[in-house]
Design a binder for these strands. Sequence first.
DNA 1: ATTTTACGTCAGCCATGTTGACATATATGG
DNA 2: CCATATATGTCAACATGGCTGACGTAAAAT
Lengths: 178, 178
Amino acid sequence: MADVKSGPNPLFLREEELRQAIELLFFAYRDFTAEPDQILAQYGFGRAHHRVIYFVGRHPSIAVSELLQILGITKQSLSRVLGQLVTEGFIRQRPGQRDRRRRLLDLTEKGAALERKLTENQRNRVARAFREAGAEAVEGFRGVLVNIMDESNRARFTSQDAQARGPDARSKSSAGRG
Amino acid sequence: MADVKSGPNPLFLREEELRQAIELLFFAYRDFTAEPDQILAQYGFGRAHHRVIYFVGRHPSIAVSELLQILGITKQSLSRVLGQLVTEGFIRQRPGQRDRRRRLLDLTEKGAALERKLTENQRNRVARAFREAGAEAVEGFRGVLVNIMDESNRARFTSQDAQARGPDARSKSSAGRG
DNA sequence: ATTTTACGTCAGCCATGTTGACATATATGG
DNA sequence: CCATATATGTCAACATGGCTGACGTAAAAT
């Protein structure tokens, strides 16, 4: 359509820029998950196990329903991997105190060790990328990714605090919403 | 955990920062692919079809082996989705001129229409994110993601040129590495 | 006492990745 | 010309990790 010869074409550049971003996400995400996948395979686990281990580590004593919300999968899907992780001693379950229907999940020491192994890998990759790209770039990275995300998920990232709290919020100042 | 009261703890902040980045990638990527997945489902297609349509659109007359390299899957996996796309008239194959063993792939008009539909969705999402995060952030986004990627994949993104050329590069200056 | 909630489980389906083996057409190099 | 290498396709079997639907049980809430 537009004549290319007429110097810098902003529409073309924009199109190219946006496609590069799309591909950047594809390749970066794939490489980002490849190494942990390799490690997991040695345990007979897959990426789904990684996610469960990660988020249980991130939100100690998380309940099944909360984990389901974060993962965005069905309980049947979760059940398969969670069952294995419990059976093989990576995750421990215990009933909630106030509500004994809830099964609170925690990593065992074995689970925490695997979590560290897996996360260390990704953390190192991100740390290297942050270092090489610079502090300003990190802000930009966050800014763009947060806006690529659905709005409904952004709350986790709006303040450091909100994310650290997570579903197991134990703020000493408020009574908590249990 | 580390004592929070002892002022800004750089190690803790770093850990938190890195974990946020990991989660950012997870949630952003998931949301980024969710809408196209919905559209694809209406055609009886999945994400794998999307990738094929995308990269064939991006690299017109790409050969099967080159597509395989980009996608990083086996020919058997590709065969399944590519076969469907050809059968259903989204992609056209023709033998190469110089090398008639090669099957060059192109989108049909029908295929191009679907490609536009799918990519428009993701492009809009990225465009919005870019707009809201600002030009500087875009640079940071690129800088970090490029460094998260394996080095072997970075060539596509080092210059606009390298990416536009793609795998069908015929550089006249070097003899190649084969 | 009934209903709702949180969780589990069985059964089957689908998409998409894998490996291994084998076939066919074409190109390339003695 | 023949032998080998390359590009592609295909069949078969298997694994992972989503999904839906149906049903069960314990505990909380009304």
